[in-house]
């Protein structure tokens, strides 16, 4: 019941924001602040007859998925390995602390020199953005796993890989999810930034950046809205559903809200 109420309120709020925005836009200069109507009109133009907007979104999504998946696989592996080997951790930890302090966008000029304009640079930037928080949190998660669990599993004859899959990872799932969530946020940032600096034809960041040349403010607004919606989708729907299926179901966190 409370949930239904929330939804109604949110919808009412969105409507009132749009109406208010329209009023302000009507009072101000059209060029500087586009009205919701003109943003909606621009959206239609960008979908029909040529589905440009969908192309931008598809291209960005493709890059994000590739870059983020690589970051997830490598990040989790590095986190697990350095979490298991104490000596390795002593070397990897400070390096990671150093690398995590570098703004992801700073890699882009370097990647532009090393691999040039286009997809490769953008995907590498997404990877670099997501990798460090994922690896760092995975390793932290490995540290807090109850050693009794490991001993019990070993005594009952679980081999290394199985032990990692069935004991370490489930036991450190809260950290895995924290890392995955931070990682996707960083990957998003890297995606938009890198697309502005390195994309050659498509992508949502590219769309916003290219709109500037034509003073196409409605398209920029549209881009921001699309990014907002997509990040909401990736975070709330993707990560939260994994969260619900794992740690909430297993009772590792208390459900609140």
């Amino acid at each position: 019941m409370g949930y239904d109420n929330m939804n109604k309120k949110t919808i009412a709020l969105i409507m009132s924001v749009i109406v208010l925005w329209q009023l302000i836009a009507l009072l101000m200069n059209m060029k500087t602040l586009p009205s919701p109507v003109s943003v909606a009109g621009r959206t239609v133009e960008l979908i029909y007859p040529k589905p440009l907007l969908l192309l931008h979104v598809a291209e960005s999504t493709k890059r994000l998925i590739i870059g983020y998946l690589i970051a997830l696989v490598l990040g989790l592996s590095v986190g697990i390995i350095s979490g298991l080997e104490g000596n390795l951790k002593k070397i990897i930890n400070p390096l990671m602390g150093f690398m995590i302090s570098i703004p992801t966008i700073a890699w882009v000029p370097l990647l532009l020199i090393l691999v040039g304009l286009g997809d490769k640079t953008i995907i590498l930037a997404i990877f670099l953005g997501g990798f460090f928080p994922i690896a760092y949190n995975m390793q932290r998660g490995m540290e807090i796993v109850n050693l009794d669990l490991i001993r019990a599993a070993k005594i009952m004859g679980l081999k290394d890989i199985k032990c990692i899959l069935h004991v370490y990872i489930p036991a450190s799932m809260p950290s895995v999810i924290t890392g995955a969530r931070l990682g996707i946020g960083y990957s998003w940032r890297a995606l938009v930034g890198a697309e502005m600096l390195a994309a050659t034809e498509h992508g949502i960041g590219f769309m916003i950046y290219a709109s500037r040349a034509f003073q196409d403010v409605p398209a920029m607004f549209l881009g921001l809205i699309v990014i907002g919606v997509l990040s909401y989708v990736t975070d709330k729907i993707l990560i939260t559903s994994v969260e619900n299926k794992t740690i909430k179901k297993w009772g590792m966190v208390t459900q609140h809200g």
């Binding site: 998003w188 940032r189 930034g193 916003i208 500037r212 921001l224 990014i227 907002g228 909401y232």
Partner: peptide, 14 residues
């Protein structure tokens, strides 16, 4: 969650 840099072109225009 909107990355800061996404606002940049808009502010440049403004």
């Amino acid at each position: 969650p909107i990355p800061g840099i996404a606002w940049a072109p808009l502010f440049i225009t403004w």
